[in-house]
Amino acid sequence: MKVIGVLAAYWIILLIDFPSLRKMKSKKLTIVFFAIFGITLLLAILEVIGVKMINPMIVLDDWMKKIGLHY
């Protein structure tokens, strides 16, 4: 159910932005748009199906502790 909600939200974004993308007639803009779109869609689906993602904050904190850049 949650995945359907995510897909619906992304479908709405496509409906809103696609006309302006077509009007701009820029291949680069379309590629960037769909690249960000794809990344966020993937992250959103992983989130709703319950895949536990690593917190980059904690990873960075450990790494900074190792190299001594840490209080």
Binding site: S20, L29, V32, I36, I39, T40, E47
Partner: peptide
């Protein structure tokens, strides 16, 4: 982002960037 990729306008990527901020928030939550 628009400047980085030399895009003609930043407006068409506003909504997807917003989604990116939201989805990026979840792994950062602690």
């Amino acid at each position: 982002i628009a400047q980085f990729f030399n895009l003609k306008s930043y407006r068409p990527i506003v909504l997807v960037t917003g989604m990116l901020i939201i989805t990026n928030m979840y792994p950062l939550q602690a």
